[in-house]
Design a protein around this nucleic acid. Structure first.
Length: 477
RNA sequence: GCCGCUAUCGUCUAGAGGCCCAGGACACAGCCCUCUCAAGGCUGGAACACGGGUUCGAAUCCCGUUAGCGGUACCA
């Protein structure tokens, strides 16, 4: 087998959709696994809807995800001459014909068929105008489209994920390959490009299955062996319907904004429709590449479950070092409007990352620790304060006095913990009775890293200040 | 309507005739650990769409039904 060449060919008519991202990922994984080449081709032939901004968003999304391309981006719009030449080659060889039927006449024919309850199918024999009428239209300079004459024969291929898929030529329309303005239609452009770019494996979404018989027919007529096709299943929303805006996040940029890490996103997307074959869930990139195969891809569409994505992201977050997390956290901090100044955030990140499921969540906690104005009192914190009543401030005061005696140089988790445990023992309080008020005083809530670590991260002066203010009831929480 | 694809726990999946009265993960419930939470450990409930075949034996093969999805453009 020659070295594989695959392509990802998005249309820049919208954002990079998660379904597209996964298709790109499968192409990338396959290329990496086989040592092949990943070609990026932007299919911008729909001039109405394509924009440079969309192209940039797609490129950015892939870059963020870590899906790198080896060649391109090619822009399909620049290959119009070749598309046209291929279509005309088909015409010259008798595989295609000129179609003078106007769109209006076509609509009428379709409407007639519908009225009769019949299935409309564009057939040369039925639609072709009499020769004298054709001649008249040619001489009057009327524009014409070029249609491909679909042969009445079986058109089948061995799909790498579905196995054999078979169509009958008679079920297909004689489809247009060149518009009357001389530009190629999708199927023609794709086949022309895939041949020119020597694509060996076309890995694309299931929604293209119905285009494939047309493309296979084009390959045959052009005398070129078709590539291997692999149609990967679609990604559906919670309700089993096609993923759309009303399902929430659909663009990869949305996930970045949610605080998902690229590696987690890749892992999650890969396991949506593909399985390494055993019970592994967290699959490192190198393993993924080594174990990837088209045959192991699921045939069935998958419903996206963002809860599992967040769980997976949490797994990555707790494994990633503070160094690796620093840049994404700073980015999110910026979104939250927090300026960390010159402060080294890494110890803070280390303290909170184990409990976080998203980078956003980390950033919020970091913000609350480095700046009291970002403390967000929550429901459970308020409930605890109410439940404790006067002992809330009493215990806080005890803790304030005890920890206040720790010298700045000794302000570390070990010493603080020993001090607080001693306090609990001597005052016959449960450890939780001294720890929880501190937690609420410092974070506004009942959940955080262990209290001694929290005190270290927030810092001695700031911690004592927050405790004192809370004990005096002057903070409002 | 027609053509095509698909069908295992709520969700993602393992399973390619006996290893499966179906395994893992997320979610959910309980317990352990514990200053809280998360993580981790343990336990529990939870699925082979339906009906026919083939076979000594079927989640796995075949046929049908049903359902979902995709397509049916001078869109991509």
């Amino acid at each position: 087998m020659p070295t594989p060449r695959v392509r990802f060919a998005p249309s820049p008519t919208g954002y990079l959709h998660v379904g597209g991202a996964r298709t790109a990922l499968f192409n990338w994984l396959f290329a990496k696994h086989t040592g092949g080449t990943f070609v990026l081709r932007i299919e911008d032939t729909d001039k109405e809807r394509s924009t440079d901004a969309h192209t940039q968003v797609i490129l950015d999304g892939m870059t963020w995800l870590g899906i790198t391309w080896d060649e391109g981006p090619h822009f399909q719009g620049t290959y119009g001459d070749r598309h046209r030449a291929d279509a005309e080659r088909l015409l010259a060889a008798g595989h295609a014909y000129k179609d003078f039927v106007t769109p209006d006449e076509l609509d009428a024919a379709r409407a007639r068929a519908r009225k009769l309850g019949a299935t409309f199918r564009y057939r040369r024999a039925e639609m072709e105008l009499p020769t004298d009428e054709q001649a008249r239209r040619i001489s009057s300079g009327m524009p014409y489209a070029i249609r491909f004459a679909v042969p009445d024969e079986e058109i089948a291929w061995d799909d790498a994920v579905h196995g054999r898929i078979s169509w009958q030529g008679r079920d297909l329309d004689d489809f247009i390959i060149l518009r009357s303005d001389g530009s190629a239609i999708y199927n023609m452009a794709v086949v022309s490009d895939d041949i020119a770019m020597a694509i060996t494996h076309v890995i694309r979404g299931d929604d293209h299955i119905s285009n494939t018989p047309k493309q296979v027919a084009l390959y045959r007529a052009l005398g070129v062996a078709p590539p291997v096709f692999a149609h990967v299943p679609m990604i559906l929303g919670r309700d089993g319907k096609k993923l759309s805006k009303r399902h929430g996040a659909t663009a990869v940029g949305d996930y970045q904004d949610m605080g998902i890490m690229p590696a987690a996103m890749r892992n999650f997307l890969a396991l949506l429709g593909w399985s390494p074959g055993d019970n592994d869930e967290i699959v490192p990139e190198a393993d993924m590449i080594a174990r990837f195969s088209l045959e192991a891809i699921q045939k069935k569409a998958a419903v996206i479950d963002t809860t599992k994505l967040e769980w997976m992201n949490g797994q990555y977050l707790s494994r990633l070092s503070a160094d690796e997390l620093l840049a994404p956290v700073v980015r999110q901090l910026g979104v939250l409007g927090v300026d960390a100044g010159t402060r080294d955030l890494r110890p803070v990140i280390d303290a909170v990352k184990a409990r976080a499921r998203t980078v956003t969540h980390i950033a919020e906690q970091v913000a609350a620790r480095i700046d009291a104005s970002h403390v967000k009192p929550d429901e459970k914190g308020a409930v605890l304060i109410a439940k404790l009543g006067t002992s809330y401030s009493n215990n806080l005061l005890l803790a304030f006095n005890a920890t206040g005696r720790i010298a700045a140089a000794d302000w570390n988790a070990t010493t603080i913990e020993a001090t607080l445990r001693a306090l609990a023992d001597s005052s016959s309080l449960k450890l939780g009775d001294v720890m929880q008020p501190i937690r609420v005083a410092l974070t506004g809530g009942t959940v955080s890293e262990p209290v001694p670590e929290l005190l270290v991260v927030v810092g001695r002066e700031e911690s004592l200040g927050r405790m004192r203010r809370a004990a005096e009831g002057s903070t409002g929480y």
